[in-house]
Computed example of a mutant assay.
Amino acid sequence: MTVLGAVFRPQLPPERLRDIARTAEDAGLDELWLWEDCFLESGIASIAAALAWTERLRVGVGLLPVPLRNVALTAMEAATIHRLFPGRAVIGVGHGVQDWMGQTGSRVESPVTLLREHLVALRALLAGERVTTDGRYVKLDGVALDWPPSTTPAPPAVFAGATGPRTMRLTGEAADGTVLTGGTSPDEVRRSRQLIAQGRESAGRTGHHPVVVYLHTATGPDAEARLRAELDTLGDTWGPDGPYGVAGSAETVAGAVLALAEAGADTVVLQPTADEPDPEGFVLFTAAEVRPLVPRDE
């Protein structure tokens, strides 16, 4: 099944979230995704509000930067969300943008080590375990959640973001799913799948490992110009050898979504440009125009 979502970008003020979440719910969008980019909006506050304003919509946070968070706090927040809104939240963590982590005084020497330790402890806490660990960065002494989430049929999945090969393998080894950044091409999804599989094999893990991919997307009369400008601000160049993005009609966008799905993406999340003139319209476009063109069953 190909899940289709859209991003509420934190460049929008928080007070816009209510209308966009309700638009997503009413339009039948599969998932709405949020970011915790420094220094814009809280991922946990935003997901709690979006879930409270809706009844069916699944909402994802991709990602919470672990250098900013003690793992016990991450577990408490995630457990609360999962108990309040069972089955509707997807929470992912990552090592954060290192320049931002430096600004907050939380940058560490080995981001991969921190992410590994955080993932191992977080998954154990959400599984209801009592955790004692003395890692390089994560240190817990007999910590257990008083209100863990339900573990039936399984503890809630913990996703992790990845870019480089080491982190890709780590997500396969220590996370329950992987989030790939905007600009990831179908060929890169295939390579990511291979690296994730290596990590899972090394850890003796079996079963399906879902992959979420953001897709740079623009639609409307000035779509191509806005997408090019967006990628220019990121230091990338859109083209055959540049980051994967799509501009144009619902049919064109659906083709890009299907290419990612065929390469191994389980969820494709359309990422509007920062200057998207009609965020509610973008959500409606995703749900009403693109979704019918993307088969749910592959």
Rank of each mutant, 00 (worst) to 15 (best):
Q11C: 15
P14H: 14
I20H: 02
A24W: 07
L32S: 02
W35T: 11
D37E: 11
F39E: 07
E41Y: 11
G43K: 03
S46V: 07
L51D: 03
T54G: 00
T54P: 00
L57Q: 00
R58W: 00
G60I: 01
N70I: 08
N70V: 09
A72G: 13
L73A: 13
T80A: 07
F85Q: 00
G87F: 01
A89F: 03
V93M: 04
Q98M: 09
V108E: 09
P111D: 03
R116T: 10
H118A: 08
L119S: 07
V120G: 08
A124W: 05
L126S: 07
A127P: 13
A127N: 12
K139F: 08
L140T: 06
A144D: 04
D146I: 09
W147M: 10
S150T: 09
T151W: 08
P156N: 08
P156F: 03
G161K: 08
P165Y: 13
A174E: 13
A175P: 13
V179A: 12
P186H: 08
R190Y: 09
R193Y: 11
A197N: 11
T206Q: 11
V211G: 12
V212A: 10
L215E: 07
T217H: 03
A218W: 08
P221H: 07
L227N: 07
R228H: 15
T237D: 10
D241E: 11
G242K: 10
P243C: 06
Y244D: 10
V246T: 03
G248I: 01
A250H: 03
V257L: 00
A259E: 09
A263P: 03
A265D: 01
V268N: 05
V268H: 01
P277S: 05
D278C: 06
D278W: 12
G281M: 03
L284R: 15
F285R: 05
E289S: 08
V294Q: 00
E298M: 11
